[in-house]
Protein backbone atom coordinates (compact mmCIF):
# COMPACT_ATOMS: atom_id res chain seq x y z
CA UNK A 1 0.00 0.00 0.00
CA UNK A 2 2.54 2.56 -1.08
CA UNK A 3 0.18 4.45 -3.40
CA UNK A 4 -1.26 7.59 -1.89
CA UNK A 5 -4.95 8.15 -2.21
CA UNK A 6 -7.46 10.82 -1.27
CA UNK A 7 -11.15 11.33 -1.87
CA UNK A 8 -12.38 14.91 -2.03
CA UNK A 9 -15.94 16.07 -1.75
CA UNK A 10 -16.34 19.72 -2.65
CA UNK A 11 -19.59 21.51 -1.74
CA UNK A 12 -21.64 18.36 -2.35
CA UNK A 13 -25.42 18.50 -2.02
CA UNK A 14 -27.98 15.74 -2.53
CA UNK A 15 -31.76 16.03 -2.54
CA UNK A 16 -34.26 18.87 -2.77
CA UNK A 17 -33.18 22.14 -1.20
CA UNK A 18 -36.09 22.10 1.28
CA UNK A 19 -35.14 18.72 2.80
CA UNK A 20 -31.61 17.94 1.61
CA UNK A 21 -30.02 14.58 2.40
CA UNK A 22 -26.63 16.29 2.09
CA UNK A 23 -26.16 20.04 2.13
CA UNK A 24 -22.98 21.73 0.91
CA UNK A 25 -20.58 19.18 2.38
CA UNK A 26 -16.85 19.61 1.86
CA UNK A 27 -14.56 16.93 3.24
CA UNK A 28 -11.39 15.00 2.42
CA UNK A 29 -10.67 11.37 3.26
CA UNK A 30 -7.09 10.16 3.24
CA UNK A 31 -4.72 7.41 4.31
CA UNK A 32 -3.22 6.82 7.75
CA UNK A 33 -6.33 7.81 9.62
CA UNK A 34 -9.43 6.04 10.88
CA UNK A 35 -12.32 8.41 10.39
CA UNK A 36 -15.61 7.68 12.14
CA UNK A 37 -18.75 9.36 10.86
CA UNK A 38 -21.28 9.76 13.64
CA UNK A 39 -24.71 11.27 13.81
CA UNK A 40 -28.37 10.39 14.31
CA UNK A 41 -30.45 8.38 11.84
CA UNK A 42 -31.14 10.37 8.69
CA UNK A 43 -28.20 12.73 9.24
CA UNK A 44 -26.79 11.87 5.80
CA UNK A 45 -23.95 9.55 6.86
CA UNK A 46 -24.73 6.78 4.35
CA UNK A 47 -25.48 9.34 1.63
CA UNK A 48 -22.06 10.90 2.19
CA UNK A 49 -20.37 7.50 1.80
CA UNK A 50 -22.42 6.64 -1.28
CA UNK A 51 -21.45 9.91 -2.91
CA UNK A 52 -17.78 9.23 -2.23
CA UNK A 53 -18.19 5.84 -3.96
CA UNK A 54 -20.21 7.02 -6.94
CA UNK A 55 -23.30 5.09 -5.84
CA UNK A 56 -25.28 8.30 -5.44
CA UNK A 57 -24.94 11.15 -7.92
CA UNK A 58 -24.74 14.52 -6.18
CA UNK A 59 -27.17 17.24 -7.28
CA UNK A 60 -24.48 19.85 -6.76
CA UNK A 61 -20.77 19.87 -6.03
CA UNK A 62 -17.78 17.85 -7.22
CA UNK A 63 -16.25 14.57 -6.08
CA UNK A 64 -12.73 13.55 -7.01
CA UNK A 65 -10.46 10.63 -6.23
CA UNK A 66 -6.74 11.41 -6.43
CA UNK A 67 -7.66 14.75 -8.04
CA UNK A 68 -9.51 13.04 -10.90
CA UNK A 69 -13.26 13.48 -11.23
CA UNK A 70 -15.00 10.39 -9.86
CA UNK A 71 -17.18 10.17 -12.97
CA UNK A 72 -14.08 9.98 -15.19
CA UNK A 73 -12.81 6.84 -13.42
CA UNK A 74 -13.91 3.43 -14.64
CA UNK A 75 -15.53 1.17 -12.03
CA UNK A 76 -12.38 -0.96 -12.01
CA UNK A 77 -10.05 2.02 -11.54
CA UNK A 78 -12.17 3.26 -8.64
CA UNK A 79 -12.37 -0.20 -7.07
CA UNK A 80 -8.56 -0.44 -7.04
CA UNK A 81 -8.38 2.72 -4.91
CA UNK A 82 -11.30 2.34 -2.52
CA UNK A 83 -13.11 -0.77 -1.28
CA UNK A 84 -16.57 -0.72 0.21
CA UNK A 85 -18.37 -2.58 2.98
CA UNK A 86 -22.06 -1.76 2.58
CA UNK A 87 -24.63 -2.01 5.34
CA UNK A 88 -26.68 -4.84 3.89
CA UNK A 89 -24.69 -8.02 3.89
CA UNK A 90 -27.09 -10.83 2.97
CA UNK A 91 -25.59 -13.13 0.37
CA UNK A 92 -27.84 -14.30 -2.44
CA UNK A 93 -26.13 -17.69 -2.62
CA UNK A 94 -24.30 -19.76 0.01
CA UNK A 95 -20.85 -19.23 -1.50
CA UNK A 96 -17.78 -20.63 0.22
CA UNK A 97 -15.95 -18.28 2.59
CA UNK A 98 -12.82 -18.37 0.48
CA UNK A 99 -14.81 -17.52 -2.68
CA UNK A 100 -16.41 -14.50 -1.01
CA UNK A 101 -13.01 -13.23 0.11
CA UNK A 102 -11.69 -13.90 -3.40
CA UNK A 103 -14.40 -11.60 -4.79
CA UNK A 104 -12.34 -8.82 -3.22
CA UNK A 105 -9.90 -9.38 -6.09
CA UNK A 106 -12.61 -8.68 -8.68
CA UNK A 107 -10.94 -5.48 -9.89
CA UNK A 108 -7.77 -7.44 -10.66
CA UNK A 109 -9.53 -9.92 -12.93
CA UNK A 110 -9.33 -13.04 -10.79
CA UNK A 111 -12.17 -15.51 -11.40
CA UNK A 112 -13.24 -17.75 -8.53
CA UNK A 113 -11.32 -21.01 -8.47
CA UNK A 114 -8.75 -19.70 -10.95
CA UNK A 115 -6.89 -17.03 -8.99
CA UNK A 116 -3.50 -15.80 -10.08
CA UNK A 117 -0.69 -16.30 -7.55
CA UNK A 118 -0.75 -12.64 -6.50
CA UNK A 119 -4.53 -12.70 -6.00
CA UNK A 120 -4.39 -15.98 -4.07
CA UNK A 121 -1.71 -14.51 -1.79
CA UNK A 122 -3.87 -11.45 -1.09
CA UNK A 123 -6.85 -13.68 -0.32
CA UNK A 124 -4.84 -15.90 2.03
CA UNK A 125 -3.42 -12.88 3.82
CA UNK A 126 -6.91 -11.38 4.27
CA UNK A 127 -8.23 -14.69 5.57
CA UNK A 128 -5.45 -14.87 8.14
CA UNK A 129 -5.78 -11.23 9.19
CA UNK A 130 -9.47 -11.77 9.99
CA UNK A 131 -8.92 -15.12 11.71
CA UNK A 132 -10.92 -17.13 9.18
CA UNK A 133 -8.47 -19.98 8.60
CA UNK A 134 -10.77 -22.59 10.09
CA UNK A 135 -13.82 -21.28 8.25
CA UNK A 136 -12.34 -20.93 4.77
CA UNK A 137 -14.14 -23.94 3.28
CA UNK A 138 -17.46 -23.36 5.03
CA UNK A 139 -20.55 -22.15 3.18
CA UNK A 140 -21.59 -18.66 4.23
CA UNK A 141 -25.13 -19.78 5.11
CA UNK A 142 -23.71 -21.81 8.01
CA UNK A 143 -21.95 -18.82 9.62
CA UNK A 144 -23.06 -16.67 12.55
CA UNK A 145 -23.57 -12.92 12.08
CA UNK A 146 -20.19 -12.18 13.65
CA UNK A 147 -18.39 -14.70 11.46
CA UNK A 148 -20.10 -13.32 8.37
CA UNK A 149 -19.02 -9.79 9.31
CA UNK A 150 -15.43 -11.04 9.52
CA UNK A 151 -15.78 -12.64 6.07
CA UNK A 152 -16.95 -9.34 4.57
CA UNK A 153 -14.11 -7.54 6.28
CA UNK A 154 -11.62 -9.99 4.81
CA UNK A 155 -13.25 -9.53 1.41
CA UNK A 156 -12.65 -5.78 1.61
CA UNK A 157 -9.06 -6.23 2.85
CA UNK A 158 -8.27 -8.68 0.05
CA UNK A 159 -8.64 -5.84 -2.45
CA UNK A 160 -5.60 -4.21 -0.77
CA UNK A 161 -6.86 -0.76 -1.62
CA UNK A 162 -5.37 2.32 0.03
CA UNK A 163 -8.84 3.40 1.18
CA UNK A 164 -11.74 1.54 2.79
CA UNK A 165 -15.29 2.81 3.30
CA UNK A 166 -17.50 0.87 5.70
CA UNK A 167 -21.14 1.63 6.48
CA UNK A 168 -21.93 0.46 10.03
CA UNK A 169 -19.53 -2.50 9.99
CA UNK A 170 -20.35 -3.43 13.59
CA UNK A 171 -24.15 -3.02 13.47
CA UNK A 172 -25.99 -5.88 15.24
CA UNK A 173 -22.76 -7.57 16.33
CA UNK A 174 -21.99 -8.75 19.85
CA UNK A 175 -19.41 -6.69 21.83
CA UNK A 176 -16.65 -9.21 21.16
CA UNK A 177 -17.12 -8.96 17.42
CA UNK A 178 -17.57 -5.19 17.54
CA UNK A 179 -14.12 -4.86 19.08
CA UNK A 180 -12.67 -7.47 16.78
CA UNK A 181 -13.90 -5.81 13.59
CA UNK A 182 -12.75 -2.39 14.79
CA UNK A 183 -9.36 -3.88 15.68
CA UNK A 184 -9.07 -5.31 12.14
CA UNK A 185 -9.85 -1.90 10.65
CA UNK A 186 -7.43 -0.19 13.05
CA UNK A 187 -4.75 -2.66 12.03
CA UNK A 188 -5.44 -1.89 8.38
CA UNK A 189 -4.97 1.83 9.10
CA UNK A 190 -1.75 1.20 11.04
CA UNK A 191 -0.41 -0.54 7.93
CA UNK A 192 -1.00 2.62 5.90
CA UNK A 193 -4.63 2.38 4.84
CA UNK A 194 -7.29 4.98 5.32
CA UNK A 195 -10.69 3.96 6.68
CA UNK A 196 -13.97 5.85 6.81
CA UNK A 197 -16.47 4.10 9.06
CA UNK A 198 -20.03 4.93 10.07
CA UNK A 199 -20.52 4.11 13.77
CA UNK A 200 -23.36 4.49 16.23
CA UNK A 201 -21.47 3.59 19.40
CA UNK A 202 -19.80 6.81 20.56
CA UNK A 203 -17.45 5.10 23.02
CA UNK A 204 -16.32 2.71 20.31
CA UNK A 205 -15.82 5.64 17.95
CA UNK A 206 -13.86 7.59 20.60
CA UNK A 207 -11.56 4.71 21.39
CA UNK A 208 -10.77 3.62 17.81
CA UNK A 209 -11.08 6.69 15.59
CA UNK A 210 -8.37 9.24 14.91
CA UNK A 211 -10.91 11.65 13.53
CA UNK A 212 -14.63 12.14 14.13
CA UNK A 213 -16.99 13.69 11.61
CA UNK A 214 -20.22 14.73 13.35
CA UNK A 215 -23.22 14.97 11.06
CA UNK A 216 -26.69 16.38 11.55
CA UNK A 217 -29.40 17.29 9.03
CA UNK A 218 -27.18 16.64 6.02
CA UNK A 219 -24.39 18.92 7.26
CA UNK A 220 -21.06 18.43 8.97
CA UNK A 221 -21.40 19.76 12.49
CA UNK A 222 -17.82 19.16 13.58
CA UNK A 223 -14.68 17.50 12.24
CA UNK A 224 -11.74 16.73 14.51
CA UNK A 225 -10.07 14.33 16.91
CA UNK A 226 -12.16 12.69 19.66
CA UNK A 227 -10.37 14.77 22.31
CA UNK A 228 -11.28 18.00 20.50
CA UNK A 229 -14.85 17.23 19.54
CA UNK A 230 -16.33 14.71 22.00
CA UNK A 231 -18.11 17.01 24.47
CA UNK A 232 -21.43 16.65 26.28
CA UNK A 233 -22.64 19.87 24.58
CA UNK A 234 -22.01 18.47 21.14
CA UNK A 235 -23.66 15.15 21.95
CA UNK A 236 -26.68 17.11 23.21
CA UNK A 237 -26.68 19.24 20.08
CA UNK A 238 -26.19 16.47 17.49
CA UNK A 239 -27.99 13.52 19.08
CA UNK A 240 -30.42 15.31 21.37
CA UNK A 241 -29.46 13.12 24.35
CA UNK A 242 -27.82 13.98 27.64
CA UNK A 243 -24.48 12.27 28.14
CA UNK A 244 -21.42 12.31 30.34
CA UNK A 245 -17.97 12.19 28.84
CA UNK A 246 -15.18 10.97 31.07
CA UNK A 247 -11.61 9.85 30.60
CA UNK A 248 -10.69 6.30 31.46
CA UNK A 249 -7.40 5.40 33.14
CA UNK A 250 -5.92 4.40 29.79
CA UNK A 251 -6.75 7.82 28.33
CA UNK A 252 -9.64 6.71 26.15
CA UNK A 253 -12.87 8.65 26.29
CA UNK A 254 -15.90 7.03 27.84
CA UNK A 255 -19.38 8.20 26.87
CA UNK A 256 -22.36 7.39 29.08
CA UNK A 257 -25.83 8.29 27.89
CA UNK A 258 -27.99 9.48 30.73
CA UNK A 259 -31.33 10.23 29.06
CA UNK A 260 -33.17 12.29 26.52
Amino acid sequence: MTRTATINLDKVSVGESATPRLSNVTVTFQQNELTAIIGPNGAGKSTLLKCALGLTEPDAGAISINNKALTSLSPIERARIVSYLPQMRALAWPLKVRDVVALGRFAYGGALGRLKAEDAAAVDQAIISCGLERLRDRNTDTLSGGELARVHCARAFAAQTPLLIADEPVASLDPHHQFKIMAFIKDYVTKGGGAVVVLHDLSLAASFADRLIWMKDGKINADGSPDETMTRERIQDVFDVSAEVSKRDDGALQVTMTGV
Binding site: L55, A79, L91, W93, L103, F106
Partner: peptide
Protein backbone atom coordinates in the same frame (compact mmCIF):
# COMPACT_ATOMS: atom_id res chain seq x y z
CA UNK B 1 -20.63 -13.94 -16.00
CA UNK B 2 -18.10 -12.42 -13.57
CA UNK B 3 -20.46 -9.58 -12.75
CA UNK B 4 -23.10 -12.13 -11.78
CA UNK B 5 -20.72 -13.74 -9.27
CA UNK B 6 -20.00 -10.34 -7.72
CA UNK B 7 -23.73 -9.61 -7.54
CA UNK B 8 -24.02 -12.43 -4.98
CA UNK B 9 -22.94 -9.79 -2.45
CA UNK B 10 -25.73 -7.39 -3.45
CA UNK B 11 -25.73 -4.50 -5.89
CA UNK B 12 -23.95 -1.97 -3.67
CA UNK B 13 -21.12 -4.30 -2.75
CA UNK B 14 -20.81 -5.36 -6.40
CA UNK B 15 -20.51 -1.71 -7.38
CA UNK B 16 -17.78 -1.34 -4.77
CA UNK B 17 -15.93 -4.33 -6.24
CA UNK B 18 -15.76 -2.59 -9.60
CA UNK B 19 -18.70 -4.19 -11.41
CA UNK B 20 -20.25 -2.00 -14.07
Amino acid sequence: GRGLTALSLGEEAAHGLGVN
